[in-house]
Write a protein that binds this DNA or RNA. Structure first.
Lengths: 253, 253
DNA sequence: TAATGTGAAGCTTTTCACAGCC
DNA sequence: GGCTGTGAAAAGCTTCACATTA
C-alpha cells in the first residue's frame, strides 16, 4: 500500500508504478525457473506467458527498470534475474518476525518459501506463555514481552502478524513503536498505522468472497449451471426495511 | 426506503467494477462489527474510516449497488449488511474443498473464518495415502483419487489449492475438468485455466517482496534509517544508481 | 441542515501499434 | 526478420465538489 509520501528522491527514471512492482516478483519467479533449466535468453512473449500476463505489459514493466533487453533476441535470463532482484531489494537480507504462533503462524514458520529470497525468519513470538518456549521449525518461540528487544537486537525489518483479529492492532502498534515500517497482516482486520508504515494484507475470507461474487454471476447469467449450488439455508435476515419486497431473490435475465 | 417498486439499482448487470467488488467484503466486515455493537445507522464518513478507505470512494462503491442510503442520515447498518451479502452471493452456501493437507492446508482446515460467511469446508483431500484417512478438524481426509466424485456429490463450488507448487497445475486441471470454476491458489505458481474459470491467488512470497521494495526505498531515500538492515551477504551493494549494471552473474539469496 | 449520490476532472494502468535496433 | 522499447490512445479507478434530498 502506498506510503503517502509525496516527496520523491528525484532520481531520473525512478518512480516505478505500484502495479509494476506487484508483478516483478512474478517475473522473477518465472525467470528463476528458466534459469534453473539453463535457458540463456527469453523473449517478452515467452516470459509473459510463463508469468501469466501479456507481452506488452511485460515489456512496459521492464522498461521502467531500464533497457535490459536486446532487440531481435530477447532478455538475458541471468542478467534480468539480477536486475529485478536488485530493484526489489532482494540482494539484502530481510529478517522477519512472526507474531502469533497459532495454526497459521506455525504453518508459516515451517514454510520453506520464506528463506528462499533473502527473507529469514528471525523470530517467532506469542503472547501465550505456554506457547513461548516451544521449539518450532528449529526456533524457540519467544514471549511478546521481549518484542521490542528482539526487533532491536535482530534488526527485524518486517513483522508478520498472525494473531487473532482482536489482538492485531495492539501488536501492530508495538511493532511500529519498535521501529518497524513494513507489516504483513494475516489477521482479518484493518490496521491503522502512521504515515510511512507499509501494511499489506493477506485475507482468505476476502478472496473467497470475491470468488463467490463471480461464481454467483456465472450461474445466474448462464442458463447452464456448471455445479449447481444447493439453496441457501441461513441467510442474513433483513430487518429494518423489508428487503424481500424489493428485488426478491433476483435472477436478472 | 426500498418499497415494493422494482426500481433497478442503477448499475445492475455487468456493472460493478472489479475494484469495488474487492472492497465490498471490507465494508461488510466493518458493518458486521457495527451490527454486533447494535449501531443502527452509519455515515459514509464513519464506515469509510472503519474500512480504511476514504468516504468518497465508499459512497461511489455503494452507489453501484443502488441507492441504499438516506441523505442527511446515513446508511441503515442491517439493511446494508443484507444488500452487500446478497450482492456478493453470501446468502447461499458455498462448499469448499481444500486440496493438499500439509502445514498450510492443515491450518486452513482449522481456520474458523471459513465457516463464518457461507463458506463451508466440504472436503479435505491429499495425494498421500498416509495423510488420507487422518482426521483433521473433525473431517476425514480423502484421497485425491476420489476428487471428481467428491466434487460432484458434495456440489463443491470452490477449490482451494494448498499443494506444493509442482503439483498445483495438475490439481487445477482436475478441478476444472470436474466442473469447478472458482479456484483459490496458495501454491506459488501461475495456474493456467480455460476462459470462464476464476483464479485468485494468495502468495506470501510476493507480498514480502513488495514490502521489501518499499522498505529498501525508505532507507535509501531518507537520511534517517529506521531499522538499519544489515548489509547483504555477498551481494554487490550497488545502491540506487541507475543502469550502469554489468554483472551478468546472478545474485541469488 | 447534514449527508448521500454522482457528473466531471484527474490519475493510474493497460493496450495498441510501430519506430528503432540487433 | 525478429523483438524490444515506447509514445499515444483507451480503459479503469479515484477524488473532487456540489446539487439534491430527507
Amino acid at each position: 500500500m502506498a506510503t503517502g509520501r509525496t516527496e520523491r528522491p528525484a532520481h531520473r527514471g525512478r518512480g516505478i508504478p505500484e502495479a509494476t512492482v506487484a508483478r516483478l516478483p512474478l517475473y522473477l519467479r518465472a525467470l528463476s525457473a528458466l534459469s534453473e533449466r539453463g535457458v540463456p535468453t527469453v523473449s517478452s512473449e515467452e516470459l509473459a506467458a510463463a508469468a501469466g500476463v501479456n507481452s506488452a505489459k511485460l515489456r512496459k514493466d521492464l522498461s521502467y527498470l531500464g533497457s535490459y533487453g536486446t532487440r531481435g533476441v530477447g532478455y538475458d535470463v541471468e542478467y534480468l534475474v539480477y536486475q529485478i532482484s536488485r530493484e526489489l531489494g532482494l540482494t539484502q537480507d530481510w529478517p522477519v518476525a512472526i507474531i502469533g504462533i497459532g495454526n497459521l503462524g506455525h504453518a508459516l514458520a515451517n514454510y520453506g518459501g520464506f528463506a528462499s529470497r533473502g527473507f529469514r525468519v528471525a523470530a517467532l513470538l506469542d503472547a501465550d506463555r505456554a506457547v513461548a518456549g516451544q521449539r518450532i521449525a528449529g526456533m524457540v518461540v519467544r514471549h511478546m514481552d521481549d518484542l521490542e528487544q528482539i526487533v532491536r537486537d535482530d534488526h527485524v525489518s518486517i513483522g508478520v502478524i498472525t494473531t487473532p483479529a482482536p489482538a492485531a492492532q495492539g501488536v501492530c502498534d508495538r511493532l511500529v513503536a519498535a521501529g518497524i515500517t513494513s507489516i504483513l497482516n494475516f489477521a482479518p482486520t484493518v490496521l491503522s498505522v502512521p504515515e510511512g508504515v507499509d501494511v499489506r494484507k493477506v485475507d482468505l475470507s476476502i478472496e473467497l468472497q470475491i470468488l463467490a461474487f463471480h461464481e454467483q454471476r456465472k450461474s445466474t447469467s448462464d442458463g447452464a449451471a456448471p455445479n449447481l449450488p444447493p439453496a441457501a439455508p441461513g441467510a442474513a435476515a433483513s430487518r429494518a426495511g423489508d428487503v424481500g419486497g424489493d428485488l426478491p431473490e433476483v435472477m436478472p435475465a
